[in-house]
């Protein structure tokens, strides 16, 4: 990788108290994300994807290890690390346009109060509205929009202040399949145009490969990195690439790893037992 490292995690550990015991949600995670890179995190449920992303955002404090942005260890959330949540993060009392330019209300982004900076911000909000295809709904409130439109607004709002890195936690998880594909191409286009660095969490392997230049596969109990895969596709993606043999092979390989690490096997055994019992019926239970 030729570009400099933006975010680096080294030996990051995070435990959660659970009743009397503890869950090791992140077990010595080390990962570098480079400038302009699109990295996706996949893995079985409970493997710590969200925890890692929230630690990167500074929303979750890690117990040990270092998370650094441009070499400086993070202390809590910061405007240079914007986050897009799965849902319910827009401000319903603001219009779409005001949601997008919300950062203009915050002191960190408005130290400079020159008319040029205000104008630049207005221009930026307008550009993002156009880029995300929100012109028609710019004056509407979030509760008048479909789920897909709401996520467009959330992405535009996160991009507004030109963050160093965009963190996304299953941002399309609540959308239907068609809308999701549209959003995939949109986010690829936008991240290219804005040249932003993205860390994207999903549980959908196809989504992870289609969007990511590198796919980080995580495994649960304890939450750890199982493997990192470079996606052998050009940066500009298109839907037909999903049918390429290398795409299909990578998907199969990653799915295998996820199944192997998720403890799926025991589940299958249990299901078999359950259905045996069901088939045996009341006669068998006597």
């Amino acid at each position: 990788m030729s570009t400099p490292v933006v975010v680096s995690c080294s030996e990051v550990v995070k435990r959660f108290q659970r009743g009397s015991g503890t869950t090791l949600a992140l077990d010595r995670i080390s990962l570098d994300v480079h400038e302009g890179e699109f990295v996706t995190l996949v893995g079985a449920s409970g493997c710590g994807k969200s925890t890692l992303l929230r630690a990167l955002a500074g929303l979750e404090q890690h117990d040990s290890g270092v998370i650094a942005v441009d070499g400086a260890p993070i202390r809590g959330p910061g405007a240079e690390r914007a986050m897009v949540f799965q849902n319910y993060s827009l401000y319903p009392w603001l219009t779409v346009r005001d949601n997008i330019s919300f950062t203009r209300q915050l002191a960190v982004h408005t130290r400079e109060r020159t008319s040029a900076s205000v104008e630049a911000a207005l221009g930026r909000a307008d550009a993002l509205i156009r880029l995300m295809g929100l012109q028609e709904v710019a004056d509407a409130h979030p509760n008048q929009l479909s789920g897909g439109m709401q996520q467009r607004v959330a992405i535009a709002r996160a991009l507004m202040s030109r963050p160093r890195i965009l963190l996304m936690d299953e941002p399309f998880g609540a959308l239907d399949a068609q809308t999701r594909e549209v959003m995939h191409d949109l986010i690829l286009h936008v991240s290219n145009l804005e040249r932003c660095t993205v860390v994207f969490v999903t549980h959908d392997v196809e989504e992870a490969i289609y969007l990511g230049q590198r796919v980080v596969v995580m495994a649960p109990r304890p939450g750890r990195i199982d493997g990192i895969y470079s996606v052998p596709l050009p940066r500009l993606r298109s839907q037909p690439m999903k049918n390429l043999p290398e795409f299909i092979a990578l998907k199969a390989g990653i799915l295998d790893r996820i199944r192997a690490t998720a403890g799926m096997q025991t589940d299958v055994d249990m299901l078999a037992q359950l259905s045996d019992r069901a088939h045996a019926g009341p006669a068998g239970s006597g």
């Binding site: 500074g58 986050m83 949540f85 401000y91 950062t103 963190l167």
Partner: peptide, 10 residues
């Protein structure tokens, strides 16, 4: 999430 979104916007 509304609060956290605000935090990550600085």
């Amino acid at each position: 999430t509304q609060v956290e979104a605000g935090q990550t916007m600085g």
